[in-house]
Amino acid sequence: MPSAGDQMMAELVDAIGADAAYLLARKLGGTTIYVPRRVGDHHPLRIALGLEIAAKLSAWYGGGRLSIPKQPERRARVRELRRVSSLTVAGIALETGYSERQVYRLLREPDDRQQDLFADRQT
Rank of each mutant, 00 (worst) to 15 (best):
M1G: 15
M1H: 11
P2A: 10
P2F: 02
S3E: 05
S3V: 03
G5M: 03
Q7F: 04
M9K: 06
M9D: 12
A10S: 09
A15L: 06
I16Y: 07
I16T: 14
G17F: 13
D19V: 14
A20W: 02
A21N: 08
L24C: 06
L24Y: 00
A25P: 04
K27N: 05
G30P: 08
G30T: 05
G30W: 00
T31R: 10
T31K: 10
T31I: 04
T31M: 12
T32V: 13
T32L: 11
I33H: 03
I33N: 00
Y34F: 13
V35K: 01
R38M: 12
R38N: 05
V39S: 06
V39P: 07
G40I: 02
D41L: 13
L45Q: 03
R46M: 11
I47M: 11
I47F: 05
A48T: 07
L49M: 08
L49A: 06
G50A: 10
L51Y: 08
L51W: 03
I53V: 13
A55R: 14
L57G: 04
L57T: 10
S58C: 08
S58D: 03
A59R: 14
W60A: 14
Y61V: 00
G63D: 08
G63N: 10
G64C: 13
R65V: 10
R65D: 14
L66N: 00
L66E: 01
I68F: 08
I68Y: 03
P69M: 11
P69H: 12
K70Q: 15
K70P: 07
K70E: 14
P72C: 05
E73N: 13
R75N: 14
A76T: 01
R77Q: 06
R79E: 04
E80C: 12
E80G: 02
R82S: 11
R83P: 06
V84P: 03
V84Y: 10
S85C: 06
A90I: 04
A90F: 00
G91M: 03
A93Y: 01
L94M: 13
E95Q: 04
T96Y: 08
G97A: 04
G97E: 00
Y98K: 02
Y98G: 06
E100I: 11
E100F: 02
R101M: 01
V103G: 00
Y104P: 14
Y104W: 10
Y104A: 13
L106F: 04
E109H: 01
E109V: 01
R113G: 08
D116W: 05
L117T: 09
F118I: 10
A119Q: 06
A119T: 11
A119I: 10
Q122T: 14
